[in-house]
């Protein structure tokens, strides 16, 4: 399994779990959970520096150091292509030219469902501007293929609504997207518990990105560890190839040599 690397934009990673840094109790919990998850790629949001904030308060990037982790700035909260592009440009400046971004353009506050029209518009501008775009998308196989052909470095369909923990709601679409893809496919959003993460990996996904499933658990650090194992187990299970399902029983012990 040492050779089974996740390659994104030409860089190899050992971990197939990407994690967010939102919704944690404090910086200590954030750091401990990220550490326990084994994640190497970590998402952050870009927001206004609070005026009058206590300057001694730790900065997220002092806790989650760009020297140790690949920082993946997101465009969460953006509802237009313009805002998403602006956010990515600020992130690149903030991270000294680091150009890997997670693009998401939302369409609706209730569902946080992606607005694919603006997502495609933003992706086009960002790719032209030299960004490496990992894109959050609806689970439409045709749109997913289009995003790949545009030059997105990874395509990340939702498995369920952001923060819902509903699990892999449409495994058939995730499988279709993966079947057609030449870039990494990551399930982004929907995972609620470790078995969901394993299912995503068993479908053949290259990785899973999650935040609330860990941060929203009663014991986030323990759940981070569970997710790490689930991702590894799901990946190995996928590579191993599951047995075919049968309608009737098939004895595991030999019939020959019975003495009764």
């Amino acid at each position: 399994m040492q050779d089974d690397k996740l390659i994104i934009a030409g860089k190899a990673y050992n971990s197939r779990l990407l994690v967010g840094t939102g919704k944690y109790k404090d910086m200590d919990e954030t750091r401990d959970a990220i550490e326990a998850s084994g994640a190497e790629i970590v998402t952050v949001a870009i927001r206004r520096t609070n005026i009058g904030q206590n300057p001694d308060e730790p900065n997220l990037l002092d806790v989650i150091s760009p020297d140790k982790y690949t920082i993946l700035p997101n465009t969460a909260g953006c509802y237009t292509a313009k805002d998403a592009v602006r956010t990515c440009q600020l992130a690149r400046e903030l991270l000294d030219g680091h150009d890997l971004v997670k693009l998401e353009v939302l369409g609706d506050q209730k569902t946080l469902y992606p607005n694919m029209v603006d997502t495609i518009e933003a992706a086009e501008i960002l790719i032209k501007d030299g960004f490496k775009v990992m894109v959050y998308t609806s689970d439409d196989p045709i749109i997913a293929k289009h995003l790949e052909e545009m030059g997105c470095v990874a395509v990340m369909p939702l498995a369920g609504l952001i923060g819902s923990g509903l699990g892999i709601c449409n495994p058939h679409n995730i499988r279709l997207i993966k079947e057609n893809a030449r870039v990494p496919i990551l399930v982004d959003a929907g995972v609620g518990t470790a078995s969901d993460a394993a299912i995503a990996m068993e479908l053949g996904c290259d990785a899973v990105l999650m935040n609330t499933a860990i941060a929203g658990a009663k014991k986030p650090v323990l759940m981070a560890s569970a997710m790490k194992k689930a991702i590894e187990a799901g990946r190995e299970s996928f590579l191993a190839g599951r047995m075919p399902k049968k309608a009737y029983a098939s004895a595991s012990s030999p019939i020959d040599g019975t003495f009764f």
């Binding site: 927001r47 206004r48 997220l60 600020l90």
Partner: peptide, 10 residues
């Protein structure tokens, strides 16, 4: 003028 930094997010 906007001054921004990185904060927790998913």
């Amino acid at each position: 003028v906007e001054i921004v930094h990185a904060i927790g997010g998913g």
